[in-house]
Design a protein around this nucleic acid. Sequence first.
RNA 1: GGCGCCAUCGCCAAGUGGUAAGGCAAGGGUCUGCAAAACCCUCAUUCCCCGGUUCGAAUCCGGGUGGCGCCUCCA
Length: 490
Amino acid sequence: MSATHSSPALSVYNTLTRRKEPLAPLRPGEVRLYVCGPTVYSWVHIGNARTFTVFDVVVRYLRHRGYRVSYVRNYTDVDDKIINAARETGEDPAALAERFIEAFEDDARALGLLSPDVSPRVTEVIPEIRALIQALLDQGVAYAAGGDVYFQVSCWPEYAKLSRRNLDDLRAGERVTPGEHKREPLDFALWKAEKPGEPAWDAPWGRGRPGWHIECSAMSEKYLGTTFDIHGGGLDLIFPHHENEIAQSEAAQHIPLAKVWMHAGFLELENAKMSKSLGNVVQLRHALAKVDPEALRLFFLSSHYRNQLAFSDDALADAEKRMEYFYETLQRVDERLGGREVKPGPLHGDPDVHLRAFEQAMDDDFNTAGALAALSGLFAQLNEYLDKPPAPDRAMVVRTLATLRAVVPTMGGVLGILQSSPLAWLERRRDRLVAQRKLDRELVERLIAERSEARKQKDFARSDAMRNRLLEMGVELRDGAGGTQWKVRS
RNA sequence: GGCGCCAUCGCCAAGUGGUAAGGCAAGGGUCUGCAAAACCCUCAUUCCCCGGUUCGAAUCCGGGUGGCGCCUCCA
């Protein structure tokens, strides 16, 4: 079922060149990927979650295509925001960072994000950061001033090649923050001099802590080497963060930092980017309390990763309904198959068309919306085989159904959805809705039993009255061969 | 002001030169005691507007209009 990586068809949009390029890993068969992870000063929001889900699917798909993937996603655990947050709570900055790393890992697990192969922390790579800064000082592209160390942008002619900005315009808009010792406004801090009560490490040019950008240069080099395949992050990191990473690393190493730069689009809320200043932030943990994690992933993947995506309750409700359709279909299929051994034999039609369409879409810069269309095609066919078998040979129909069913975990595994057993998922969802609507489960079940009794006696007026009463409570009934099933209306 | 992105059916959303995927909603049908679910059928000669290139454009070019992002911490 797994595709081979010999096919050269996978193309990826590269922010550096502003075009789609065939993926050509530096080491055959292996992709090295670095994603800028969270700064752990608070709980992550759903915008962060979208970006991390995007790269989660990138990793999953590359592995599906047969690549070995080395996936590194860092934690920024030393930073102004952490220090400020710690000051407010009266906590030690390190303790606060640790607390939010744990919170992040809980959220990530709940969302079904794969663990990266390495999740380095800035505080673990201080020696590497010092070495990198020293190299930049030695080469004369950085300078120490007042205990700080700055990168001198004017020494790096390629500066702004990623964001394609005009340096004069940047200089015009740049403001000088009091207390800094920059020679030129565009210069940025590699090292910040120690301030009272702040975490600090020794360094030849004075005690202090790393600037924001240097950490990713140090961590990516440590774990992936001097040139790796893909560097990813949110759109807003293009400038200045990724620009500065490129400047530092390439000025020090004289070879490219990464071949391909991938950037995920924003999740927007109420027609605006989510930001703390606008007060329109939805934390991931709060979203997950209300919506099924796989439904949230489905929502993230419903649009191409580079597009803006608007977050809304309606969109989430749609996604959850769709997940319910998937799982109800799977449950029906599993009931029909009944765990029987399916003997090999001729199949009806070509069961591979869906996976081929899925891979074709994913090969095109991870077009998950297109891939979802292929998944829809698979489910439509599953239902068709259940209700209206297109061939008279029953054994062949069952074989084909089983073959199609086996494709579901393959596609689902790439997208990180459909990972539950249908029954477990459907029950979990119903339980959640029962709790949310504060339904009296015993009453529901008693009414259903009474209605079944009425139906048995062909008292359809009474039966229908009870159906309507339940419907008013939001409970929908399904009469089937095995009795009456119920679900909560969404 | 500089740089960049986007505009496709009521809604969400693929499609980057060859004649409009998919989902939701809606209407009709099959099934059902009635329902529900599922299935079948219908649902954009047309892709914000104007002009151009081309045998051919939603797709390329020019000009508008509208929305958004980055330029300061930001996924």
